[in-house]
Design a protein around this nucleic acid. Structure first.
Lengths: 113, 113
DNA sequence: ATAATATATACAAGTATTATAATATGTTAA
DNA sequence: TTAACATATTATAATACTTGTATATATTAT
């Protein structure tokens, strides 16, 4: 099974505005490079670089179709990350109960902020 | 509602080995700074810097308890990201059907790789 | 007060990321 | 074969990130 470290690396690769946009497009289906120019508003070489990075990390792949490179999603982790971006989070996690136990022991001090 | 761009930013902040480890610990409950030294294997100033970053982005917060800073999770997005790291992904997404439609049109060319 | 503890801050140095510009490669069409 | 097209590669400069070292601040204990 894939190590946690590897997945953290993938998260970092995914977490970039242009690359997210690319991945979003790919979640709709196969696309070629020039298809990303409009949605990302990035230059062709820049898109090509991002695609290369995503491919080096195994997140996407392509096949040749005439003179087009047809890119598609490979790694299922991408869809889960995109889900998080769609999800609406309301509010915060419940505040912790006072005076928790840490390794240093339990401390009775007052809550100052 | 929180913008997608903001969430991408948060993802990027989260996607760091030391910070993930910190967030993992916090998902178990409240911890003070020195509690992170062992699991992260990072120096105190380094941990403090990462905690500061996580806090600036609103992912965590703390309250004072005597001379300890008790940190806790605030943003629910953190738990969803940690879920992804736990999840076991087997295999790849289904390969795309041949000859998809891109903006450039449908191309009949052979699959070369 | 003073010392010890817990944590933060400032700064410097190294490294990594990003976008841009210029150019190259391979494919199809004329 | 030449032109046009689709895309990649390389170099580079600007910026951002990361960490270590040194030091500062605040709190508690003596």
């Amino acid at each position: 099974m894939r190590s946690v470290d590897k997945k953290i690396e993938l998260l970092k690769v995914i977490a970039h505005p242009v690359r997210i946009q690319i991945l979003k497009e790919l979640s709709k289906g196969v696309k070629c490079v020039s298809d990303f120019e409009e949605p990302t508003q990035a230059s062709q070489p820049n898109i090509s670089q991002h695609l290369g990075l995503l491919r080096r990390y195994g997140l996407i792949d392509y096949y040749m179709d005439g003179r087009l490179r047809c890119y598609f999603l490979v790694d299922p982790i991408v869809l889960d990350v995109l889900e998080i971006l769609k999800k609406e989070y309301k509010g915060s996690l419940p505040a912790p109960a006072c005076c928790p136990v840490t390794k240093k022991g339990t401390y009775p001090g007052n809550r100052r902020r």
